[in-house]
Design a protein around this nucleic acid. Structure first.
Length: 603
RNA sequence: GCGCCUGUAGCUCAGCUGGAUAGAGCAUCGGCCUUCUAAGCCGACGGUCGCAGGUUCGAGUCCUGCCAGGCGCGCCA
């Protein structure tokens, strides 16, 4: 299936990004920014009042209260000033509220609440302006330019070509791709890279395993090596070899023959991984081969450069690097007693190329079982003069699959855990991607097959997709293409029902959600947001049931309301679509229930 | 033994640089179909935030110690 996600190459500067300097934007808002203009007016008014009260400088933070009765936006500035002013926060808040010119601050009401919060409520028109902004920005809504076009590399998956991709790789593929997209959406120029460990002992073991299966396939009684690869796929690779070369290597134990077998195996397995990743809709800009480091002399060059630092020493026949000087728990061997380099050395050489290729920011997405290598690699790079925190790491915990309350463990084909393909063929690519993204990387992931196979709104993926499809169904009913709804002539201030206000404020949150998710490399933030927004959209949609509640229906006879509500539906559809697109998940115009558990969608 | 991650409702999880009565989904229970698709909506029930101290006007969030689980501690990758 081709990746339907449009690729936006141009970088867009939103109006908001242009208006607010980056530093202030980061600290200024907590949960929301709706609507920006209004918050800025309040900020200015409060700053002036604080000046009158003798406060030279104070950070005025806004947040969107969880409870709608607390208004549209609130600030805790009185609480933060309590200590320095030696007055109770409540008293300070009362003072500010009394001095505030409500009209000039652009709000309808201000209230002091709780321990000293100032709660503001906007006029309906101010809230609704977010709808116009969403529609106007369309595919660019949610994009910002805080990355300023700088280069960043995201390295992920990086599986050895020794077998099919398993679920850990799948989580990494989904996470890495989403993190890369988040960076693109926030103005970074992203390079997606996959590093292949195609040298070393595991490759030898693979070649020996294939050779054994190859000879078995030709009727010879041969045994797998002790630590050999057990999966069925090794037999497929061996069968492929038989097809290609017949019995050429049946009695040939030479290194040349083994090299040829290894090359064949790597080619086949890489092709299989590429197929799996392609169907999983993950693409890379570059595949970097470990073997190229050796071929290009970079491993030798790296050890040479390390020696020049004076941090290298010989002990027990091996060559060591003083990585403990840079925070590693102990020094590490670079070259073994037998003259072979350990994995550490090409790892350092590889990461050095990232720096030398110009990437001043690199994010490595890896399984947390590799966290032991983090300090080591960083130490090696620091020895060569690179900065201490380079590269950044996103380490994700393991995946567990449960079906009917029981853990699913085995895959005959892989000889171990379930493969990525087995999973997404059963539940669909959209569901698999979403489930891998909906938990923070730090957390263990329980993949609930029962929920994944459910095709109702209980399944969070479908809940979001249904909400999107519902908006599209309104457009169809109205006889309009989505793009025909531009909201231009609509009087949005008529959107004053509580469910509408809440929904609009949700939509206004999206750009900040994307910023935050990108900053924290946390796609799950987007998932949570989409589920919440989809829930608000579904509530609004159902509240407007034309039979039971005709006064809230979108397609009402009142032309003004109809135009405004169509615009809102359009804004909802845009935000849900943008969020899903960002996560690499389809935003179908119509949901069609599949017979076999796989979802079919029409567009 | 040392290091990293995790511990929040029956289950799966949010909770961003400490801020208002700790939130969501699932499950359970109770309402609601002449529909812009009920593949749904509305409501209720449910929590000593692992434990014990500390910092603070204020702690799920920060600090210390302990307990439990996962992962890692190789001249393996």
């Amino acid at each position: 299936m081709a990746r339907r996600t449009p690729r936006f190459r141009r970088r867009t500067r939103t109006r908001r990004a242009r208006r607010a300097p980056r530093a202030r934007r980061r600290g200024a808002h907590r949960r929301a920014r709706t609507p920006e203009v209004a918050s800025e007016a309040i900020r200015a008014a409060i700053a002036e009042i604080l000046g009158e009260m003798g406060v030279a400088e104070a950070e005025i933070q806004f947040e969107r209260p969880r409870d709608p009765t607390h208004g549209d936006v609130a600030t805790n500035v009185a609480l933060t000033l309590a200590r320095s002013l030696k007055r109770s926060p409540r008293e300070i808040a009362e003072d500010i509220a009394a001095r505030l010119d409500v009209h000039r601050a652009g709000v309808e009401t201000v209230e002091v609440a709780g321990p000293g919060f100032l709660n503001f409520r906007f006029a309906a028109g101010a809230v609704a302006s977010a709808v116009a902004e969403v529609i106007e920005s369309d595919e660019a809504y949610g994009r910002t330019d805080s990355g300023a076009g700088e280069d960043v590399m995201v390295e992920f998956v990086s599986a050895n070509p020794t077998g099919p991709l398993h679920l850990g790789h799948g989580r990494q593929a989904a996470l890495g791709d989403a993190i890369a997209s988040l960076l693109e959406w926030t103005g970074w120029k992203v390079h997606r890279e996959f590093y292949y460990n195609d040298s070393g002992r595991q490759m030898d073991l693979l070649a020996l395993s294939v050779r054994a299966r190859y000879r078995q396939a030709l009727g010879r009684d041969d045994a797998l090596p002790d630590d050999g690869y057990q999966g069925e796929y090794v037999k497929d690779v061996a069968d492929g070899l038989v097809e290609e070369v017949g019995d050429r290597y049946l009695d040939d134990d030479s290194n040349d023959a083994l090299d040829a077998i290894r090359t064949h195996a790597v080619r086949m397995l890489r092709a299989e991984q590429d197929r799996d990743l392609g169907e999983f809709r993950v693409r890379f800009d570059e595949y970097f081969l470990e073997s190229s480091l050796y071929d290009g002399g970079l491993v030798d060059e790296t050890i040479q450069r390390l020696r020049e630092t004076g941090l290298v020493y010989e002990k027990d026949d091996a060559t060591w690097l003083e990585t403990s000087r840079f925070g590693d728990q102990k020094d590490r061997v670079m070259v073994r007693g037998n003259g072979q380099p350990t994995y550490f050395l090409p790892d350092v050489a590889y990461h050095m190329t990232k720096w030398e290729r110009g990437y001043r920011r690199v994010i490595n997405v890896q399984g947390s079982d590799h966290h032991g290598t983090v300090d080591r690699v960083r130490a090696g790079l620091q020895a060569l003069g690179l900065p201490a925190g380079y590269p950044e790491y996103v380490l994700h915990q393991m995946v567990r699959v449960e079906k009917d309350g029981e853990e699913v463990k085995f895959s005959k084909r892989a000889g171990s855990g379930m493969t990525l393909r087995e999973l997404f063929e059963e539940v669909g690519v959209d569901v698999t991607r979403y489930f891998f993204q909906m938990r923070k990387p730090d957390a263990h992931l329980l993949f609930d097959m029962d929920m994944a196979l459910d095709q109702s709104d209980k399944n969070p993926v479908y809940k979001v997709q249904y909400a999107h499809a519902r908006m599209c169904s309104i457009f169809r009913k109205a006889g309009l293409e989505p793009s025909e709804i531009d909201g231009a002539g609509a009087d949005l201030s008529v959107l004053r029902h509580e469910s509408e206000r809440e929904l609009i404020k949700e939509l206004g949150d999206f750009p900040e959600i994307v910023e935050r998710a990108a900053r924290d490399a946390s796609p799950h933030v987007v998932c949570d947001y989409l589920e919440q927004t989809a829930g608000a959209a579904n509530s609004w949609y159902h509240a407007g049931n034309p039979t039971r509640n005709p006064e809230l229906a979108v397609l009402t006879d009142d032309r003004t309301l109809r135009a405004a509500r169509l615009a809102l539906a359009r804004a909802v559809q845009i935000v849900l679509r943008n969020g899903l697109t960002l996560l690499g998940i389809d935003a179908p115009h119509e949901m069609i229930r599949g017979e076999d558990g796989s979802d079919e969608e029409s567009h």
